[in-house]
């Protein structure tokens, strides 16, 4: 397998060294905060912090490039959809109207709408890097342990971890399957027309699903045979106590969350209004 996408690689950076629990706490609070607030100043600040954290983690670009492109496509679609469905939502929100240009029918581009969509874009830019980073720097078994620590049943926690753990294997299966399909003339490359290509992808999915089900059955049998699920509690070989770095990370995210909420709601609305 040439490139392993979206999988944990063991690097030694301050970000990697954090325990799973603090990574999870950080990610959850970060995402919640970014979702609630529309305060441009706070979002911009968070964006800068996210970029810094990402740089510190030194994750190679090719590990997430594909997913990033995918997200960007959906992001673009999302932006267009927002404008198509409610072109004057910004006007409604900010209570003023500054037209830029009339497009067609009832579609008019306004500064308010542009500003609103800019804020939406910023939210993506704030949440996506940290979300990706969380997947890339969290050892799956530690992730399970940390989910368990914050109260999720360990069975659920473990199934999530196993799913993450088997991503590379499933990628490998996918590659094998697609090779053999291509040899029989099922082309999924860009040479094929879009409709046909979509149909061809579907015919690759069936064997992929079957082999994945086979994998799941095998692993769950192996787990049961080794006593998985016997008690309400289990212990973790990898459990680690919180260290200095963890306390710093937790303090940081608490400060960011509280600060953002305070600044945002200081004027009684979660939208930061530049038009008044």
């Amino acid at each position: 397998m040439s490139v392993k996408m979206l999988t944990y690689t063991n690097q030694n950076t301050p970000i990697h060294r954090l325990t799973g629990a603090s990574k999870l706490l950080f990610f959850v609070l970060w995402a919640l905060t970014a979702m609630i607030i529309y305060d441009t100043r706070c979002l911009l600040a968070m964006f800068v912090i996210a970029v810094v954290i990402f740089a510190v983690s030194r994750v190679p670009f090719k590990q997430y490039s594909f997913v990033l492109y995918l997200i960007l496509i959906f992001f673009g679609l999302n932006q267009i959809a927002i404008f198509l469905f409610s072109p004057l939502y910004g006007v409604e929100l900010y209570g003023t109207r500054h037209d830029i240009v009339h497009l067609f029918a009832w579609y008019t581009l306004t500064w308010e709408q542009l500003f609103y969509q800019f804020n939406v874009a910023l939210k993506y830019a704030v949440v996506v890097p940290i979300g990706l980073l969380f997947l890339l720097v969290t050892d799956p078994s530690e992730f399970a342990a940390s989910l368990n620590r914050i109260g999720v049943s360990y069975k659920v926690a473990y199934s999530v971890a196993i799913a993450l753990r088997y991503i590379p294997d499933i990628q490998q299966d996918f590659q094998n399957i697609s090779f053999s399909a291509q040899a029989r003339g099922i082309d999924i490359s860009r040479k094929e027309k879009f409709g046909k290509r979509l149909k061809n992808v579907v015919s690759i999915l069936l064997p992929l699903i079957l082999t994945s089900v086979e994998r799941i059955e095998k692993i769950s049998t192996a787990m049961e045979l080794r006593g998985f699920g016997r008690g309400k509690k289990r212990t973790w070989y990898r459990a680690r106590p919180l260290r200095k770095g963890d306390y710093i990370a937790i303090a940081m995210i608490l400060i960011i969350t509280v600060a953002c909420l305070v600044i945002t709601f200081a004027d009684g609305s979660r939208f930061y209004n530049i038009f008044k």
Binding site: D139, M223, F228, G231, K233, R234, Y237
Partner: peptide, 18 residues
């Protein structure tokens, strides 16, 4: 099931809450 050999060996013990 484990990401390292040690964790994989420990799996049974983890489930027994050792």
């Amino acid at each position: 099931v484990g990401l390292t050999v040690a964790e994989d060996i420990a799996f049974k013990l983890e489930n027994d809450a050792v």
